[in-house]
C-alpha cells in the first residue's frame, strides 16, 4: 500500500472516531445547521490565517468560536427564528471567507478547502489530528452525562444542578475543534455530513445513547474504508467518495428497516 493511502486512512479513521460521538448530539439537539454554520465560517478562518500569517488551525478555531458566540447571542434575542439567523450568518461567513481568500489566491487550492484533500495529509498533519482527537474524546467523556441530561431536558438538568452554559459551551468548542481538524480531510462543505449521516444510520440499531455513538463510529469507519477504496480504484475525489459511501450505508439501513 502506498504511504499516502495509509496516511489518508489514518486521518479518516481519526476523524470518524470523534465525528460519531459528537454527531449523535447534533441529531439529538437538532443542530445540523449549526454545524454547517461553524464549518462554513472555517473558510474565513483559513483566509485570515493566511492573511495574518498565523497558524491556520488557530484561525479556524477563532472564527468558529466567534461564529458560535454570535449564534448563541442572536438566539437569545429571539427576534428572528434561529434557522433564519443560521442561514444569514452561515452564508455570510462563507462568502466573506471566499472574498478574503481571493486576496491570497495563488497560494491556496479552494477546491481542497471546500471538499478536503485527504490524500495530501502529511505525517505532521496526523500528529496534530491525533492531539485534537485525544483532546475531544477526553473532554467529551468528562461532560458526557451532564451533556446527555441537558440534551434531554435543559430546565430539568439546570434545576438538578447541571452547569448548562458551561457544558454547552464546551460541546460547541469540541465541534469547533472537529471542524478545524476536518478541513484538510473532508473540507468545509462536507464536514456536517460525517456528523449527521453515520449517526442517522446508527439510530435504528441502537437501544442506548452510548450504543448509538459507538455504532456511528463503526458506520464512519466502514464509510472511510469504502470511500478511500473506491477513490483508489476509480480515481474519484476522496472526500465526496467517503460521504457517498456513508449515505449508501444509510440507504441500506433504511431498506433493512422496511424489509
Amino acid at each position: 500500500m502506498d504511504d499516502f493511502i495509509l496516511r489518508a486512512l489514518l486521518a479518516g479513521l481519526a476523524l470518524v472516531l470523534i465525528a460519531g460521538p459528537l454527531g449523535v448530539f447534533i441529531l439529538w439537539r437538532r443542530m445540523a445547521y449549526f454545524g454547517d454554520a461553524l464549518s462554513h465560517s472555517a473558510i474565513l478562518g483559513v483566509a485570515l490565517g493566511f492573511l495574518l500569517s498565523i497558524n491556520i488551525n488557530l484561525g479556524i478555531l477563532i472564527t468558529s468560536i466567534s461564529m458560535a458566540v454570535l449564534l448563541i447571542l442572536s438566539q437569545r434575542k429571539k427576534q428572528l427564528g434561529s434557522d433564519t439567523m443560521l442561514g444569514i450568518l452561515s452564508h455570510s461567513a462563507l462568502s466573506l471567507g471566499l472574498i478574503v481568500m481571493s486576496f491570497v489566491e495563488g497560494r491556496v487550492d479552494l477546491n481542497a478547502l471546500l471538499f478536503g484533500d485527504i490524500l495530501s495529509v502529511s505525517w505532521q498533519d496526523l500528529w496534530i489530528i491525533a492531539v485534537g482527537v485525544i483532546l475531544v474524546l477526553g473532554v467529551l467523556a468528562f461532560i458526557w452525562k451532564p451533556l446527555l441530561s441537558l440534551t434531554v431536558h435543559e430546565e430539568l438538568a439546570r434545576v438538578e444542578g447541571v452547569n448548562v452554559a458551561l457544558v454547552s459551551a464546551l460541546y460547541t468548542l469540541l465541534i469547533a475543534i472537529l471542524v478545524a481538524i476536518s478541513m484538510k480531510i473532508i473540507g468545509a462543505l462536507l464536514v456536517t455530513s460525517l456528523l449527521v449521516i453515520p449517526a442517522a444510520t446508527a439510530r435504528q440499531f441502537s437501544s442506548t445513547p452510548e450504543r448509538m455513538a459507538l455504532l456511528s463510529v463503526v458506520v464512519g469507519v466502514i464509510a472511510v474504508m469504502l470511500g478511500l477504496w473506491a477513490s483508489y480504484l476509480w480515481d474519484t475525489p476522496a472526500g465526496p467518495s467517503i460521504v457517498v459511501a456513508s449515505s449508501s450505508l444509510f440507504l441500506i439501513s433504511q431498506l433493512v428497516r422496511i424489509s
Partner: peptide, 10 residues
C-alpha cells in the same frame, strides 16, 4: 415534555 425520537432512551 416531548423527547426527540432520535435519542434511544429507556
Amino acid at each position: 415534555i416531548a423527547i426527540n425520537k432520535l435519542m434511544p432512551l429507556t
